[in-house]
């Protein structure tokens, strides 16, 4: 059985590191793993996505509409944009965080209302304020690892030494806060 995990967000939110840790852990646990990311415009505030697929044998690196077992959205509106990629019985993890596209800054468009209610009414949703949790730990940038922690708890693979992986892949000075963020995320689920 191949599992599909879709991580979505806005350029600069750290989806790349989260998916790198996730895929490395899955590979080391013996799974076949494929991941797809669309690069190019991410630094300029674009919508970004990482498709992660793992199982005994994986063919396509891309998750189709209606095929994601878990959707992790680093931003509220992105969760709605990608919701149709989730299996109807899938789980969605949403970060209670908003990022405004330029058209909203200039007042040409408005941020949609009641997104979280809408998502909760459609799918099995876990909503957390990863940004606030990260800020309390002392650095809002570890928001991505809080979300990774929540995701790992949802996946439920306990045979992988995730904290050891964080130690290996994060700069020495930031290991402690990232491990705290990871644990805090796990506790949210």
């Amino acid at each position: 059985m191949v599992k599909n995990i879709l991580l979505v967000g806005v350029g600069g939110q750290g989806t790349l590191l989260a998916s790198k840790l996730l895929t490395t852990g899955l590979m080391e646990a013996g799974y076949d793993v494929k991941m797809n990311e669309i690069h190019g415009m991410s630094q300029r505030g674009g919508s970004v996505s990482s498709h992660v697929r793992y199982g005994e044998k994986v063919f396509s690196p891309v998750i189709d509409r209606g095929a994601a077992d878990i959707l992790v959205s680093f931003e509220e509106m992105e969760a709605l944009r990608w919701l149709e990629y989730l299996k109807p019985e899938g789980k969605v993890v949403v970060n209670k965080f908003r990022s405004n596209p330029v058209s909203m800054l200039t007042g040409d468009t408005k941020y949609p209302e009641n997104i979280l209610d809408l998502i909760t009414s459609k799918a099995d949703a876990i909503i957390l304020d990863a940004c606030q949790i990260a800020e309390k730990l002392g650095n809002s940038r570890v928001m991505n690892i809080v979300l990774l922690g929540a995701l790992i708890e949802v996946i439920g693979i306990n045979s992988i030494d995730w904290e050891g992986l964080i130690e290996k892949h994060v700069k020495y000075d930031f290991v402690d806060i990232n491990i705290k963020a990871f644990k805090a995320g796990r506790n949210q689920v």
């Binding site: 209606g66 944009r81 919701l83 149709e84 109807p88």
Partner: peptide, 20 residues
């Protein structure tokens, strides 16, 4: 065919790349 969650995405605003 596979079942897809229908949701109203008409209010989802595009994020075109912009000057930083």
């Amino acid at each position: 065919s596979c079942e897809v969650l229908s949701s109203d995405t008409s209010k989802v605003v595009p994020r075109p790349p912009a000057f930083c």
